[in-house]
């Protein structure tokens, strides 16, 4: 039973990180119908930005302030990265065939990944231990670290905030309108460009939090980690129903827990393969994901 709860805690932690990253995929897909393959690399970039910020500010600030400052700076810089990405790689292709935009996304992913490698080198970098909260709690034999608590609490707050933003604000409503029908939204006077830019800013900022969590939770970061984290988060978005915001949250959590249980009970060498078996099964049984809607073609 202890293994069960231990894996559940671990699964929820990694699931929260997946969910944060998955939101970036799903929101962009919602408004642009584009798989933003560069999102994972943006997340990796944010981990490096976070690392640099921590190294620069360490000693100058108290531990709590250091973490807060790192988060804010990383989120701002990553959002800026997202903005540049949208402007340079996606906006010029909005009217082009859909697959052209996919290639452009892959190109952008290549640029970020190799850019990281050129700047910070191909070897993994380690987050300094002193910058990461390192208390541990033992609850009836289940270990929870302060970092895990932090991941869970901050992710929860951010997701609630996003949910409220999308459902209660004017801009959030515009975002949902664009996701359903961009042309109709434009005719209703919605500034579609503003919505798309906002989507990239929010998605990148959430991804930045995810990237920082990866760095602080696993400590080691490497230049091409964007692919695997990005892909897993993307799978989470698909499982939940791509384009659907609560779906991405649910998908992330489910995938995190699934991964943790496979690693805990089966074997970690098959964990990646089984994740994708799960994806394939869901695609076959319910192609639009758990919370996605089925759309019939109009003839």
């Amino acid at each position: 039973m202890e293994i069960f709860f231990q894996q559940l805690v671990n699964g929820l932690t990694i699931g929260s990180i997946y969910a944060l990253v998955a939101l970036g995929y799903t929101m962009v897909y919602g408004v642009l119908k584009l798989i933003n393959f560069a999102h994972g690399d943006l997340v990796a970039l944010s981990a490096y930005i976070g690392l640099v910020t921590v190294m620069q500010l360490m000693g100058a600030l108290s531990p709590v302030l250091l973490i807060i400052a790192t988060f804010i700076i990383t989120m701002i810089l990553t959002s800026l990265g997202g903005l540049i990405l949208e402007r340079a790689a996606y906006r010029p292709l909005r009217k082009a065939p859909r697959l052209s935009a996919v290639v452009s996304a892959l190109g952008a992913s290549m640029i970020i990944e190799n850019g990281i490698m050129l700047i910070w080198g191909p070897m993994p970098r380690i987050f300094p231990a002193s910058a990461v909260p390192n208390a541990n709690y033992n609850i009836h034999g289940v270990y929870i670290s302060l970092m895990q608590v932090l991941v869970l609490v901050i992710s929860f707050i951010l997701m609630v905030a996003l949910y409220l933003f999308v459902n209660r604000t004017k801009l959030g409503t515009a975002m949902r309108a664009c996701a359903i029908d961009q042309d109709a939204a434009r005719l209703m006077g919605i500034d579609v460009n503003k919505v798309i830019v906002t989507t990239f800013i929010i998605g990148s900022a959430l991804g930045a939090v995810g990237g920082l969590f990866i760095g602080m939770y696993y400590r080691g970061i490497y230049f091409n980690m964007g692919w695997i984290y990005g892909l897993n988060a993307f799978v989470a978005a698909i499982i939940g129903g791509i384009g659907n915001i609560p779906g991405a949250m649910l998908g992330g959590m489910l995938l995190g827990i699934f991964n943790a249980f496979i690693a805990g009970y089966v074997s970690s060498s098959w964990s990646l393969a089984l994740t994708y078996v799960l994806l394939i099964v869901i695609m076959i049984l319910r192609p639009t994901g758990i919370l996605g809607e089925r759309v019939a073609e109009k003839v």
Binding site: A88, A89, P92, L93, A96, P97, S100, A101, V103, S104, L106, G107, A108, S109, M110, I111, I112, E113, N114, G115, M117, L118, P122
Partner: peptide, 21 residues
């Protein structure tokens, strides 16, 4: 060496912008 893939990514984006087909 490594820089070529960076240039490559840029080329992919530019080709798609100029020649989407």
């Amino acid at each position: 060496a490594e820089a070529r893939y960076l240039v490559f990514g840029v080329a992919m984006i530019l080709i798609m912008i100029w020649r989407p087909k």
